[in-house]
């Protein structure tokens, strides 16, 4: 019972942040405007700001935050390591590489190739994870620790390759790349919502149907095999799901790290280890973290906008270090 109160509190907080995000920005909306929007009598400017700018952005932010958090939850479950995060193991670097290829070879105006950018970014992230994944087998068995180590190394190596093309970039292209790596939510139009959100939601539903298996992965591999579970296959399915979730998310919201680490962790502290509860809690926490980061980035140094990814890292980094230094079990 207490758990549902806590979850409700988180949801209420989330709603508050969402409403604040919707009304604040370079063009502030008043409560009269909101009331007018409800009744459909708002003037055209307000309608445009609300429906064409604020709404798609908040939807992307909510869904991507949730996707990153669930992706982290999955990675942590299969690696049995509370410090796993899609950003740390190379998803961001891989999709960054896709972005660089886009800037180098397609470039031009974004509107001409609306879908090319998220698709290349998605393909880069997913491919990277799958390559890392295929290298993580030892004598036919998937080793999650090896997966994390190779992921970290690949992230480092790929970041080097990213800069191969940058010597040819002009200032504007460089700016675009830096913004990507800083985690700037760029896909904030309805078109991007349509290309990413439905797929993320479908994958989340599939993940939900696998929660019991995720929960059981806490046990020994041998014991699970004894129960009749095909451990390797479960891990493979889950990794692919996690990789798709995070690459989809970063393909529209830029390189964002730490959400996959922090959201599940906070959820675990609040709700214990029930996987179903953790799934929903991580979902809400992830959405809450990214929307809050985006809101703070918009407000802190206004009119300058700090990319959400940087805000997340500024909060997440100290949290991560604290986790590391804490003597107890992590």
């Amino acid at each position: 019972m207490r758990n549902s109160y806590k979850l409700a509190a988180a949801v209420i907080l989330l709603i508050a942040v969402v409403i604040t995000s919707l009304v604040t920005g370079t063009f502030n909306l008043t409560f009269q405007d909101l009331a007018a929007l409800m009744t459909g009598s708002a003037d055209e400017n307000v309608m445009t700001v609300f429906f064409d700018f604020r709404m798609p952005r908040i939807i992307i932010t909510l869904v991507c935050g949730a996707a990153l958090a669930v992706s982290g939850l999955i990675l942590q479950a299969i690696s049995r390591n509370a410090l796993a995060d899609p950003g740390i193991i190379g998803v961001n670097a891989g999709s960054g590489f896709g972005v660089v290829l886009f800037i180098t070879f397609i470039s031009g105006s974004l509107t001409q190739h609306l879908y090319a950018l998220p698709i290349m970014s998605f393909a880069g992230g997913l491919l990277t994870v799958l390559i890392i994944f295929s290298l993580s087998f030892m004598s036919g068995e998937f080793k999650s620790n090896i997966f994390i180590l190779i992921g970290i190394a690949t992230a480092m190596g790929v970041t080097g390759f990213v800069y191969v093309f940058t010597s040819m970039f002009d200032t504007e292209q460089m700016e675009m790349l830096n913004r990507y790596f800083a985690g700037n939510i760029w896909g904030d139009t309805w078109a991007f919502v349509l290309v990413s959100v439905p797929y993320i939601l479908i994958i989340l539903v599939i993940v939900y149907s696998r929660l019991r298996e995720m929960d059981m992965l806490n046990l020994d591999d041998e014991m699970l095999t004894g129960f009749g579970m095909n451990v390797n296959r479960e891990k493979i399915v889950l990794i692919v799901l996690a990789a798709m979730l995070s690459s989809l998310a970063v393909s529209v919201c830029g390189a964002i790290s730490f959400i996959g680490l922090i959201a599940p962790h906070i959820s675990r502290m609040m709700f214990g280890h029930n996987m179903k509860l953790l799934f929903f809690a991580s979902f809400v926490m992830g959405a809450l973290l990214l929307t809050t980061a985006d809101l703070l980035g918009k407000l802190l140094l206004a009119p300058m906008i700090i990319p959400a990814g940087i805000v997340v890292s500024l909060i997440g980094g100290p949290y991560f270090v604290w986790l590391l230094l804490r003597a107890g079990k992590v």
Partner: peptide
């Protein structure tokens, strides 16, 4: 190694900022 990777990410985020 995870610690190093996480700390790097964090510090590069501040640098990016």
């Amino acid at each position: 190694i995870l610690a190093g990777a996480g700390i790097s990410l964090f510090l590069y985020a501040i640098t990016d900022f």
